[in-house]
Design a protein around this nucleic acid. Structure first.
Length: 453
RNA sequence: GUGGAUGUAGCUCAGUAGGUUAGAGCAUCAGAUUGUGGUUCUGAGGGCCGUGGGUUCGAGCCCCAUCUUCCACCCCA
């Protein structure tokens, strides 16, 4: 039998130890921040009932769902002739489950299903993989991890403020420079209302989302292609021309949207959030960006997106407020807001910037060079004392050439190398080499211990 | 899903109009240096040239299919 070539499905990856150490660094950092703000962990299954997922992410999202074939004779109940049936309809008959597409919709399902165990406002975090049948590209995978934080059951804009603080803290800890972009779905609705095309809000937002990429002319062409009249398009013009800082933009916008109640509400929300940050210090730039649309059609208020400043990779974190996601599962009038960190893209950014801390690969502080059996016996008790005092230390396992042992220490970024040979044993000292400066000194073991512990 | 590229050593890439044993740099290992890494010099190992068909006396190179990765669109973490 010919050996089959081993491979994994398109857009999925294995993670080797070095990668896992770095990935875990990201996960641990993010989870630490989540916990610091009082969020609690949950997990949900990899697969959901297809009915839970369908229709929550728009038409495009439905296409990207991985569907799971029913077990057993799944064609038994299909009446129609296979050739006459449309494949989408067939899928519904033979697949009753699908892989989750994000963590927000399963969370909404979870909340409704576990209502009686939950006290509101419920703050949860969830770090799990999601799957999308998208065509892979750089930073775009078919299986990737999301790290979600959400608050559900509270309308307060303080939650938005808290999420922005969390974003700021996470990327500060990971040493990634980012900009946080904000918008509000109500403003987009207001714009659609003011130009007299309230039903076209999705088309309008998708078009103006592309402003940076295709320019104003491109946006106009896109809007005409999406069935808007040139008269209504001209109404959008001042919105695309907004200048100044965040508050300048908001005050211009107030004039443009003065006749739209919902638009003014959105402006007010953004203003409230921004005002909080007049009193709290954050390091990350907060930018009001009216071209920020976000595809997910369940957002109703704030929209947040985070982009890395030094690396071109799309958004590495995004989210917003959804007023009625639990509605479809039978729980009305419960508002939630949350953001999702894209761990895999953050990994790619950090890899490109080389911003993983060196010490996560090896935490060894001290390496004893191995000179032979007598020296080993002399060093082992010293190693034990160091370890008992919390100093991560090791001895090279073979009495190999110095060159090899030093190279080992160098490659593992071990800061101190201890040389104990016949001379040192006789004199009762250690030769300690600082691998960063290259200097070396003789010292007593107790001095070393005091220095390192 | 639509359109377009890509695949040669662990990594980054050469490979000339199809022509003998497929190259370089970095990395690895060994030696120069028997107690000194990160700099230097010398040498060595390592390739089903993505996979499967085809054309040809002969294919890394040409043709077809397929997979992967990547780019644009769509959309998005």
């Amino acid at each position: 039998m010919a050996a089959q070539k081993p491979s994994v499905p398109k857009g999925t990856r294995d993670f080797s130890p070095l990668e896992m150490v770095k990935r875990n660094f990201i996960f641990d950092t993010i989870k630490d921040v989540f916990k610091r703000y009082g969020y609690l962990p949950i997990e949900t299954p990899s697969m959901e009932n297809l009915s839970t997922l369908l229709g929550k992410y728009g038409d495009e999202g439905d296409k990207l769902l991985f569907k799971i074939l029913n077990s057993g004779d799944y064609l038994e109940k299909v009446n129609n002739n296979l050739k006459d049936i449309d494949s989408n309809k067939l899928a519904l008959q033979i697949c009753e489950k699908g892989l989750r597409y994000d963590l927000t919709v399963p969370f909404a399902r979870y909340v409704v299903q576990h209502l009686n165990e939950i006290t509101f406002p419920f703050k949860r975090y969830q770090v799990q993989p999601v799957w999308r049948a998208d065509r892979p590209q750089k930073g775009r995978y078919r299986e990737f991890y999301q790290c979600d934080v959400d608050v559900i059951g509270s309308n307060s804009l303080l939650n938005e403020v808290e999420l922005i603080q969390i974003i700021d803290q996470v990327f500060q800890s990971l040493k990634v420079n980012v900009v946080i972009k904000m918008n509000n779905r109500k403003i987009l609705a207001g714009i659609a209302e003011v130009i007299g095309e309230p039903d076209k809000i999705i088309d309008i937002t998708i078009a103006i989302d592309k402003l940076e990429k295709i320019g104003k002319k491109g946006v106009y062409d896109e809007l005409i292609g999406r069935g808007l009249s040139s008269g209504s398009i001209s109404e959008i013009d001042p919105i695309l021309e907004l200048k100044g800082d965040n508050f300048d933009k908001l005050s211009s916008l107030k004039k443009i949207l003065r006749n739209s109640e919902i638009g003014l509400k959105g402006i007010d929300e953004l203003e409230t959030i921004l005002n909080y940050f007049e009193t709290i210090d954050i390091n990350t730039e907060l930018e009001l960006d009216l071209t920020l649309a976000r595809g997910l059609n369940y957002y109703t208020g704030a929209i947040i997106e985070v982009k890395a400043l030094e690396v071109e990779i799309g958004s590495i974190c995004g989210g917003g407020r959804y007023d009625d996601l639990t509605g479809v599962f039978g729980l009305k009038d419960v508002s939630g807001v949350g953001v999702s960190f894209g761990a895999d893209r953050i990994y790619d950014v950090m890899e490109q910037l080389d911003s993983f801390p060196k010490e996560i690969v090896s935490s060894t502080k001290v390496l004893f060079v191995n000179f032979g059996e007598n020296e080993e016996k002399y060093c082992l008790p010293l190693l034990k004392i160091l370890r008992d005092n919390g100093v991560n230390s090791e001895i090279y396992p073979d009495s190999a050439k110095m060159n090899k042992q030093m190279t080992y220490a160098n490659n593992k970024n071990i800061p101190f190398v201890i040389l104990v040979g016949e001379n040192e044993m006789q004199k009762g000292v250690l030769t300690v080499k600082n691998m960063v400066s290259g200097e070396q000194f003789e010292m007593k073991f107790d001095e070393l211990l005091q220095k390192l512990k």
